[in-house]
């Protein structure tokens, strides 16, 4: 590993609980004063975390329905304990790991990340997680491995969306090995120092902050090291619209909508749009894609 990512945003940047609980009233007040359109045109560095309520009640988790509030309504049925993760493919220590065993001895870090959905909305989320590289190093990646594949749990009787076959479940995702080993890439187990809510992908999910949200696969039960590019669910469903890389890129539009701007969740009915940043504002990953035409390999 060339370096470990150091968080230039600290706990101090995270809004205190009392303040984020009150933010809606403050915003409502601002709007009342006629500041419509001025609020929300924020400097990219001024990150204010979304409230826990926002993060846990507006989700895409199609296994629990396609509506944004469906996961919050239905995900309580997910059984997250006991939880084990199958690690297989080109690894030195394959096996079915109990979650605690897989993470034992690894450090959980606070990461305040932007989160940009492919649907052109975004949030800022104070994750708690472990660098994926630490986990991969623990299981031992073999030299020929080039990709990491992930799989979401399927509990058909507990997941109403699975029965409706909106996508071809289980949901699968994948990263190139260098993306997976990048220090920005984490496996989140919590946010706001509380365990992940089921609708956020409990008990453990991927977070790749420079890619569209659907890459950050939830409720992971399998990690496979492979030498071939693994299939990913949205690409299988619609290859014209969703590529393997799916890096946040304001210059490459989704065929059905623009990706040039986004709406930060939490601004209310008069929230202004803001410009989307290349790699979602994480330029340190640009070198991973040197020499690639990102409009072709989108």
């Amino acid at each position: 590993m060339a370096y470990r990512w150091t968080n230039d945003l600290t706990q101090a940047d995270i809004t205190p609980k009392a303040a984020y609980l009150n933010r809606r009233q403050i915003l409502a007040g601002t709007i009342g004063l006629g500041a419509i359109g001025l609020a929300g045109r924020a400097n990219a560095q001024e990150l204010e975390a979304n409230t826990l309520e926002e993060i846990t009640s507006y989700n895409n988790f199609y296994e629990f329905g396609t509506g944004k509030s469906d996961p919050a309504q239905n995900a309580h049925q997910l059984v997250t304990s006991p939880w084990s993760i199958k690690v297989d493919g080109m690894v030195d220590n394959p096996g079915d790991y109990a979650l605690d065993d897989l993470l034992a001895g690894l450090s959980v870090e606070d990461r305040l990340y932007r989160f940009r959905c492919v649907e052109a909305w975004s949030m800022v989320i104070p994750w708690n997680g472990i660098e994926l590289a630490d986990i991969l190093n623990k299981v031992g990646v073999q030299s020929g491995a080039k990709y990491v594949a992930f799989e979401t749990v399927v509990q058909p009787e507990n997941m109403i969306g699975v029965q409706r076959r909106v996508l071809d479940f289980p949901y699968v995702e994948g990263l190139r090995l260098d993306e997976a080993m990048h220090p920005l890439t984490i496996m989140a187990t919590g946010l706001y120092d509380e365990p992940l809510a089921n609708q956020n992908g409990a008990p453990i999910r991927l977070v790749v902050p420079w890619k569209y949200g659907f890459k950050s696969i939830k409720s992971i039960v399998r990690i496979t090291l492979t030498d071939k590019e693994p299939p990913i669910s949205w690409n299988v469903a619609n290859p014209r619209e969703y590529g393997f890389y799916s890096n946040v890129n304001p210059e490459v539009d989704h065929p059905r909508w623009s990706q040039a701007s986004e709406r930060r969740i939490g601004g209310g009915l008069f929230a202004a749009r803001q410009d989307t940043l290349m790699f979602n504002g994480y330029p340190e990953v640009a070198s991973l894609y040197d020499g690639m035409d990102l409009s072709v390999e989108f």
Binding site: R24, E53, S57, Y58, K68, S69, R263, G268, L269
Partner: peptide, 17 residues
């Protein structure tokens, strides 16, 4: 409801409205 972010309008009132 959207203006006051009530019920289904809690988080993202614009899109929902």
């Amino acid at each position: 409801l959207a203006l006051n972010q009530v019920g289904p309008y809690l988080v993202e009132p614009i899109n929902v409205l």
